[in-house]
Amino acid sequence: MRGDIVLEGVSKTYEGKPVLRDLSLRFEEGKVTAIMGPSGLGKTTLLKILLGLESCEGSVTGMEGRRPAVVFQESRLLPWLSLKQNLELVCGPGKDREIADALALMELTDAADKKPAELSGGMQRRGALARAIAYGGDILVLDEPFTGLDEDLKERIAGKLSRQWRESGQTVLFVTHDSTEAKAYADTIVKLNEGGSL
């Protein structure tokens, strides 16, 4: 078991404007945490800090040596590769089974050989989720993972994912605007307010 992820006194400023201010937080190992709050309050910035993509003041511990699997706010599928090739790129060789399972879980088996431009927005989103699942990191970091999915599909996909998270005991952090979604799938909800405070 790895330890919890702990943020202490984390602050981030963009061009003089504070985005996160003296934020202290603990994300429990093996739990699903939803990060909520209105747009522009630093939720994505917080995820980027955790992933080491942004610098900050303060300290972040518990992320060292982890293999995060990430779904960014945009799907970020490479347009010149097929969906399956996009998954293979991050997974590396010998992961055919994981890739096939992830595509099946996201109901994308038939779209495996299609290029991202041939997929709808919702399918691209599921493709990005499939990539993160197939990668099999020890922490899942998801930025608004269900955006663009219609209600029925969202319920089905999120339900399947939620069951998988519980069974595997994976640590999951996901950003959402939707309080129903947060209540349904998260063990803990973190609400960010103006200036990135809790």
Partner: peptide, 21 residues
């Protein structure tokens, strides 16, 4: 820059990043 971030978080090697991205 989004592709660089993708390569960074998924630990794609430099050679693979150059050739495939």
């Amino acid at each position: 820059a989004e592709y660089r971030e993708l390569a960074q978080v998924y630990r794609i090697s430099d050679a693979k990043y150059f050739g495939r991205i």
